[in-house]
Design a protein around this nucleic acid. Structure first.
Lengths: 346, 346
DNA sequence: CATGTTTCGTAGAACGTTCTCCATTGTTAG
DNA sequence: CTAACAATGGAGAACGTTCTACGAAACATG
């Protein structure tokens, strides 16, 4: 179709011919199945190498596995996706599995379309990162293809889940700030328009974890949550509201680093020094957080571990595990320059 | 294998039975092929809807197309990949094509493995973003499957290319700085270890564009290129070297925004005010560049347009275009707070 | 009315695997 | 020596599409 007509692919039949055996025998060698003598295995292997044989995934899919795992991305811009992906692929090195990513967009409809597309392509299993569909929809998908869900707290019998322990993460921040002497610690959370994820969403759990931790430290009075969005603009807007309070908070815990950046901008514009007049903490420990001019205190969720765990669970599912697993990964706090003791008397 | 046994997929035969026609007829309707009466089309369509039929991609792959396009990513962390992806998927909305992303890593070997995996999965075409393999390897791939290469300047008969016009981008920066009155404008570039891409790489073209533009402005004497790497650390290191020169540059043009961030850190540590003592410009216009505390002057390459163009060219190739195309997308300069007139007398 | 020409619809052979039987050959037990 | 069994290899039927051939019917032309 292009320049020269494409050379025909080397098939299992070519290998069989070369090795002087049947196609069934080649298939057995390929799959490591029972009933193959060492001599035959060697012959076939040699023939495969000589011809540069590569199994045709689509043909395999007609009967058996495709050795393809899909990862549905809900937001390609989310800065810790690369970590999760690395964790997933890292775990799969040395296996025959290949990972393909599918941009699913942020709407339930487009995510469902992407998932369907993966199922149509006979993927052996699918990892869904922060999907926004309902649990019922997820369960329905799981009857067709094994799935692992990342970033949704509710567990389900039909599939496995891997989550960052957002309650712990929120507590780490509150404890750190309380230890520094802060009393009025406010929180900025993300308001979902789509209701599908609801109380299972990371932001909801972070907010709840914040409330719990505040109460545990006897700071119930200081609880103050404003719901905007996890964007720079949302953080800015939220901080403006909080800084206009009669009793201004001395610390703001943004549920995401991007929002924390907006908080920093608001503080800058209000001529408040950070951390002198206002301490700021974020969540996710994105790359920029560690850069000098920002130096943001943040909660680090280990994307590598999350990805690797998801990959392990998915392969286990594919190989036949029935029982459902919920794996919770503990985050750590990275203290940097944006948090410090509150100024003056309380 | 999991809980209930998966329900058998609805096939073309089920649809044919329901509609009271042959499977061949259903296939024709599906493909929009010639020789179908309106009545029959309606019957078949109805049956498909009632049964919730979805074509099985693997089965299609055995004979025809898979309607799957692959995008090989060389670096998942690169901040303008999301733009390119959006451009690609945006262009394909409404068509039957699905896009799947493959993390190829930064080594020729792993990228080749990913590309092979995509070919094994019978993808109809592949977009390669900044691949590091040799042109010969790319040409070899192109004989098997149509490909479009993004971010490599060399053109080839076997495949199409889409590039940002890095010569123009470099000139925009140099002209802007020269207009402000700068004479000693230094450049930080990226040193490739793998030689596969060589002079075709964006960094090489940007550096060459910088040299050309400097000469064009009569500033040949001020040409000063230091090769580190396109990372925060690389930018920092490069800036340290440049700032130690006897005649210190008054402006630094970093070949990438991440490196520019490192330059800003070095300036900060050296107690130089930006842009008072040192002007800094980057390339790529990544998200953080626009944030207030950074406010980096940068060159914006329109990832959307690049992605959309690549998708268009790929589909054209698949549909049969033979002639090779090289499409160059012009970047624009976004002037922000890190560039200004040089201080004092020259 | 005989003869071409469209138009519509179907049969059935691929495509490259997997995997269930089945046949053959040794080997062991009685 | 025979029966039972293990080990090895092969035949051939799927799997769900696409698409080439071909037949039948409907229509147009002389």
């Amino acid at each position: 179709m292009t320049t020269g007509s494409a050379p025909r692919r080397v098939t299992i039949a070519d290998v069989a011919g070369r090795a002087g055996v049947s196609t069934a025998a080649v298939s057995k060698v390929l799959r490591g199945a029972y009933g193959v003598s060492p001599g035959m295995r060697a012959k076939v292997r040699e023939a495969m190498d000589e011809l540069g044989y590569r199994p045709h995934a689509a043909a395999r899919a007609m009967r058996g596995r495709t050795y393809t795992l899909g990862v549905m991305l809900s937001d390609t811009r989310n800065p810790f996706f690369p970590d999760i992906i690395e964790g997933v692929t890292g775990r799969l090195v040395g296996t025959e599995y290949q990972v393909l990513l599918g941009p699913g967009g942020d709407e339930p409809r487009s995510q469902a379309r992407m998932t369907d597309a993966m199922i149509d392509r006979s993927m052996d299993g699918i990892i869904l990162i922060s999907p926004v569909m309902s649990s019922a929809e997820l369960a329905a998908i799981a009857t067709t293809t094994p799935i692992v869900v990342i970033g949704r707290h509710g567990s389900a019998a039909e599939y496995d889940s891997v989550v960052d322990d957002d309650v712990v993460g929120a507590r780490l921040v509150v404890d750190h700030l309380a230890d520094l002497g802060h009393r009025r610690i406010a929180h900025i959370t993300h308001l979902d328009r789509g209701r599908a994820s609801g109380a299972d969403s990371p932001q909801a759990v972070r907010a709840e974890g914040y409330r719990q931790a505040m109460r545990a430290r006897g700071l119930a009075e200081g609880i103050d949550v404003v719901a905007t969005s996890f964007t720079e603009e949302g953080g800015y807007e939220g901080a403006r509201q909080l800084l206009a309070r009669p009793a201004r908070p001395t610390a703001i815990f943004a549920g995401a680093d991007v929002a924390a950046l907006g908080v920093l901008r608001a503080a800058y514009e209000a001529d408040l020094s950070v951390p002198g007049d206002l301490s700021v903490a974020g969540y996710d420990n994105i790359g920029i957080a560690s850069l000098k001019p920002i130096s943001l205190t943040s909660v680090d969720q280990d994307g590598h571990v999350i990805g690797a765990t998801a990959a392990r669970l998915l392969v286990e599912r594919i190989e036949g595990r029935g029982r459902s697993v919920l794996s919770s990964v503990s985050p750590t706090l990275v203290v940097r320059g944006t948090t410090g003791p509150p100024a003056g008397r309380e």
